[in-house]
């Protein structure tokens, strides 16, 4: 995790609550996300937090997790964290490397992938995601973000979607400035009306806790807090009036093994200075 993100968390006071614990809120978030990935499922992985969490899952409780990267690497088994979705370690360790049209048309579109793992710059109460523009209007935005990438079709076609994102009022917003990827649209029945065949967001995992869609209203509801976090902190970090489950639970802190494996993975993210290698014989 970068120094900057750890600082941000300390400023917010979460780490003060965890002052006695030897893990950060970002580590808790990554561990909580990893735990949600069942062994043996096929998971479409974006770079950054999703990739870290998926690789942590594969290195702990889910050795048969199938990691699919949009660069065309199916069943990648990296022993270190890739910096990009196209690092050589992914192709070297994959069951198959296919073209980009193939990964989207043959593998994602027909619904062969169980879980889509996405991040977000903005997210609303129905799990709609913006990664395109923030502020102003589309033609003259205040902040231009990278855009869609694979996300719209991942959100539409995977069996279910898990979102991993740090929770704060700028990100957890009343209305997203741009719908890049559809969650539950404007509410119940919208995915069906649009003809989206995947199930939509099942979980949103943050640095404070876990949100799940209400089975009736589809509205994201706080169902679990990480150790040391209060419901008030989660409400304060949400721009809409956050629904809180009647039976709000508290998750388990990271185990020593989870932390050791996560930190060992993070330590592998550096390196790669472009040394020439010999061509294959």
């Amino acid at each position: 995790m970068s120094e900057r993100s750890e600082r941000t968390i300390r400023h917010r006071g979460v780490s003060e609550t965890n002052a006695m614990a030897d893990w950060t809120a970002d580590e808790m978030m990554t561990v909580a996300a990893a735990r949600q990935l069942r062994d043996g499922v096929a998971c479409f992985v974006g770079i950054g937090l999703p990739s870290t969490a998926a690789n942590l899952a594969r290195a702990t409780h889910a050795p048969n997790l199938v990691l699919i990267y949009e660069s065309g690497c199916l069943g990648a088994k990296p022993d270190r964290l890739p910096l990009s979705i196209g690092d050589g370690i992914l192709a070297d360790t994959a069951d198959a490397v296919v073209s980009v049209p193939e990964v989207f048309n043959y593998w994602l579109q027909p619904g062969r992938i169980d879980v889509g793992f996405l991040g977000a710059a903005q997210l609303d109460r129905y799990g709609n995601i913006n990664t395109t523009v923030v502020g102003g209007d589309y033609d003259a935005p205040k902040v231009r973000l990278p855009g869609a990438g694979g996300a719209p079709e991942i959100a539409a076609s995977c069996g279910e979607v898990v979102v991993i994102v740090r929770q704060n009022p700028r990100t957890f917003t009343e209305r997203v400035d741009f719908v890049t990827s559809v969650g539950y649209g404007s509410g119940p029945g919208e995915r069906e009306r649009l003809g989206l065949r995947g199930g939509g967001p099942r979980l949103v995992i943050t640095d404070l806790g876990v949100l799940e869609p209400d089975p009736v209203t589809c509205e994201l509801t706080l169902t679990r807090l990480h150790p040391g976090v209060t419901p008030e902190q989660a409400r304060a970090a949400t721009a809409w009036d956050l629904a809180v489950a009647e039976r709000l639970t508290t998750g388990e802190p990271p185990t020593a093994r989870e932390l050791a494996v996560l930190r060992a993975l993070e330590a592998t993210k550096h390196g790669g200075r472009g040394e020439p290698r010999r061509p294959p014989p």
Binding site: P101, F104, N105, Q109, P152, E153, V179, G185, R191, L196
Partner: peptide, 26 residues
Amino acid sequence: SHAGMANRYVAGASGLPFAVLRGYTG
């Protein structure tokens, strides 16, 4: 989106005027 761009190249390579996909909806 990536799926859209990839299919646009496929259509170009195939000598077709357009490509069809499940994408962008909503």
